[in-house]
């Protein structure tokens, strides 16, 4: 191979053949242009937040948020409805998701557990409109509940359960094996292990799961709209009609530009954005603390 030394060095290290110039130049330009793609994400977010704030904030008074006036020009009814419906739905979802997740993580043999996990994943991947249909057919028609608070809340619990189920399962399966073995090896019953050892370790992760499920659920529209009737009053009991913020946006969106109904829709959208953002921040904060704790656990 090549013998003539320094000329070889120069011809290789300073190769200016078209092919080399192209290769190196292409890499350099790709490196400069690809980061610009982040604008595809950043620009819509900024635009969305800016325009929704612009339409919502100037008229968003404390009175608009708190008044439960029945004339559709205040948000109080929808806020109370959202709070009550999601409180109900989350409680149910936590009940089912938590027990289910712990049972899968702690009791089920691996082969059966994988089937259950797959079905939880499939539920998460199911379009929410399908959940709405299920709720309408099962609760509103078959159970005869009609388009009510209870039908909406149970349907929403159905929607949120798999998320909580998965985090509970994950939280308990990722308890460090030595700790688990030490607890069970020293004679603790499974129930004792779950309550005294597993739960304190898994708790923060389960909490993030609950908040995540709530963040996703509170932004959902289709399951609620399909299983409830809009109401101008705050829910009186489980059989009442109910309005939640997302449903309010859907009911009002197509109103002519200048009407107050559209402004109310934007104010509801603004509130939902804030709620979802706060919930996401809570999730991040808890999971940061959780990560630190778990790191401590492994040391």
């Amino acid at each position: 191979m090549a013998a003539d030394l320094s000329s070889t060095a120069n011809s290789i290290l300073f190769d200016r053949s078209a092919r080399t110039v192209w290769r190196i130049g292409f890499d350099r330009w790709i490196g400069r242009l690809l980061p610009l793609l982040f604008l595809v994400a950043i620009f819509p977010i900024l635009s969305l937040v800016y325009y929704i704030s612009e339409k919502a904030v100037p008229t968003l008074t404390w009175n608009v948020i708190t008044s439960t006036s029945p004339y559709g020009d205040h948000l109080g009814v929808a806020i109370v409805g959202t709070f009550e419906l999601y409180l109900f739905a989350t409680s149910l979802a936590v009940l089912f998701g938590l027990f289910g997740g712990v049972a899968v993580a702690e009791f089920l043999p691996e082969s059966a557990a994988n089937w259950v996990r797959t079905s939880a994943n499939l539920l998460v991947g199911t379009p929410s409109v399908i959940l709405g249909y299920m709720g309408y057919i099962t609760f509103c028609l078959y159970f005869g509940w009609g388009l009510t608070f209870e039908a909406g809340a149970v349907t929403m619990a159905f929607f949120m359960t798999p998320y909580i189920f998965r985090t509970a399962d994950l939280a308990f399966t990722s308890v460090p094996a030595p700790i688990r073995e030490a607890a069970l090896g020293s004679g603790a019953r499974p129930s004792q292990y779950i309550l005294k050892v597993g739960a304190p370790i898994a708790f923060p992760q389960i909490l993030t799961g609950i908040f995540l499920a709530l963040a996703i659920g509170v932004g959902e529209t289709a399951p609620i709209v399909l299983t409830t009737t809009a109401s101008v009053l705050v829910p009186q009991n489980l059989h009442s009609p109910v309005t939640v913020l997302t449903a309010l946006i859907w009911e009002n969106y197509a109103q002519a530009p200048s009407t107050g109904l559209q402004t109310i829709a934007f104010q509801a959208a603004f509130l939902i954005l804030v709620i979802v953002l706060v919930l996401n921040v809570v999730v991040r904060v808890i999971s940061t603390i959780y990560r630190k704790r778990l790191e401590g656990l492994y040391q």
Partner: peptide, 20 residues
């Protein structure tokens, strides 16, 4: 120095250094 040429010189590209 690779055959007398500093591979850390400004006008030398690491991609070409690594071929040698």
């Amino acid at each position: 120095l690779y055959l007398g040429q500093d591979i850390y010189a400004r006008n030398v590209n690491p991609v070409l250094v690594r071929r040698r």
